[in-house]
Amino acid sequence: MADDRALVDRFLDMLSAEAGASRHTIAAYRNDLARAAETLGGLGSVSAGDVSRLGSSWAELAPSTVARRSAALRRFFGFLLDEGLRRDDPSSALPRPRLERPLPRILDEEEVRRMFEAAEDRAASGEANAVRNLALLELLYGSGLRASELVGLPRGAVRPEQPFLMVRGKGDKDRLVPISTRAQAGVGKWMEHVPSAALWLFPSGKSHLSRVRLFQIVRAMAADAGIAPERVSPHVLRHAFATHLLSGGADLRVLQSLLGHADIATTQIYTHVDSARLVELVNARHPLATRGR
């Protein structure tokens, strides 16, 4: 087992140095490999026959969990093979669950409008939390930020003369995200309530607003707008941002960049959500659409 730990450490060092994996990714890989090692009694010298036992021991796990653990082991064994630390790769015996990517839950444009109207009515009072909540909503729906990206914004992230945000997303990768003039205005009003010494745009205690608290705030805003709270979350608003942009004619590659997706296959799920609009677009814009029979 000691040798296993050394091999895992070398593998994770490679992921960090060469692949730029984040701390969260490293921790997830370490956990998945440790669990597999417990089941198999080690990893460094296991055979394909040993690895095949994982299928039965993972039978009660969700397909997504099995897929993630299999991917971690597959990459680990590939590393050992590349480094000459193994002569074979037993990963062919790993279970390969069939995953069906679920369609994202979304809100229609009318429901989003109602959320904004309710949030704006509350913010009109000038009460600090109501002003903050409107700024949060503007950034979630107006820029498609992930919850972690939003709560982690530094105090000076939004500037009147700068129509973009520099956001640090998954894998500690930076990207530029446009910010609307109304979002800038909403954040500007909120800044009047943020202490000048604060490090974060949305401070809370000694740190920043937590993702859990953001989740609660968004659900409360949904309830204010007469929308079932369980239908709404920060991620649902991010999905609404993407789907409504696509409906408005946004290019899929542009959407990929705005959302910070490493793989366009992740972005393509929105084409399923808005399939009716895409059929209409092909019928109206394709060169053959206007060609007579």
Rank of each mutant, 00 (worst) to 15 (best):
45 S>M: 12
224 D>L: 03
223 A>C: 05
162 Q>W: 15
269 I>D: 06
63 P>N: 06
233 S>R: 08
157 A>I: 11
198 A>C: 04
144 G>Q: 07
264 I>Q: 11
70 S>E: 07
184 Q>G: 15
232 V>K: 05
97 P>M: 12
147 A>Q: 02
160 P>V: 13
198 A>W: 00
276 A>I: 01
257 S>W: 11
116 F>P: 10
158 V>N: 12
38 E>T: 14
242 A>Q: 00
30 R>V: 11
240 A>D: 07
102 P>H: 10
139 L>T: 05
52 S>H: 13
282 V>M: 14
292 G>T: 14
212 V>P: 11
164 F>H: 10
119 A>V: 03
184 Q>D: 15
140 L>C: 02
42 G>Y: 04
62 A>L: 04
140 L>R: 10
76 F>C: 02
103 L>R: 01
276 A>N: 05
154 P>Q: 01
21 A>T: 03
257 S>A: 13
150 L>Q: 06
135 A>N: 10
101 R>V: 13
39 T>I: 15
217 I>K: 01
204 S>R: 14
22 S>R: 00
230 E>L: 15
222 A>W: 00
32 D>G: 06
124 A>Q: 09
81 L>Y: 05
125 S>Y: 02
213 R>C: 14
238 R>T: 05
292 G>W: 14
131 V>S: 07
235 H>A: 09
145 L>A: 02
25 T>N: 06
75 R>M: 13
73 L>N: 14
28 A>C: 06
179 I>N: 03
274 D>C: 08
83 E>D: 10
42 G>M: 02
108 D>M: 00
196 S>M: 10
13 D>L: 12
4 D>Y: 04
9 D>W: 10
42 G>W: 00
281 L>H: 10
99 L>R: 11
32 D>E: 08
57 S>C: 09
19 A>G: 01
258 L>Q: 10
62 A>D: 12
206 K>C: 07
116 F>E: 05
29 Y>K: 00
234 P>E: 01
276 A>K: 05
243 T>S: 15
193 H>S: 11
130 A>V: 00
63 P>F: 07
254 V>Y: 11
153 L>M: 11
293 R>A: 14
152 G>M: 00
41 G>C: 04
253 R>P: 11
169 G>T: 01
134 L>K: 04
198 A>P: 01
175 R>T: 12
257 S>C: 06
221 M>E: 10
226 G>H: 07
232 V>W: 01
91 S>F: 07
291 R>W: 13
266 T>V: 04
187 V>H: 07
110 E>K: 13
45 S>T: 08
210 S>I: 11
144 G>W: 00
50 D>F: 06
101 R>C: 14
232 V>L: 01
202 F>V: 03
276 A>P: 05
180 S>I: 09
275 S>C: 01
179 I>L: 10
12 L>A: 01
200 W>N: 02
8 V>Y: 03
191 M>V: 14
179 I>A: 12
267 T>S: 07
44 G>H: 02
65 T>P: 05
247 S>A: 12
4 D>S: 02
242 A>T: 02
273 V>G: 01
131 V>P: 08
171 G>L: 12
167 V>I: 05
34 A>M: 14
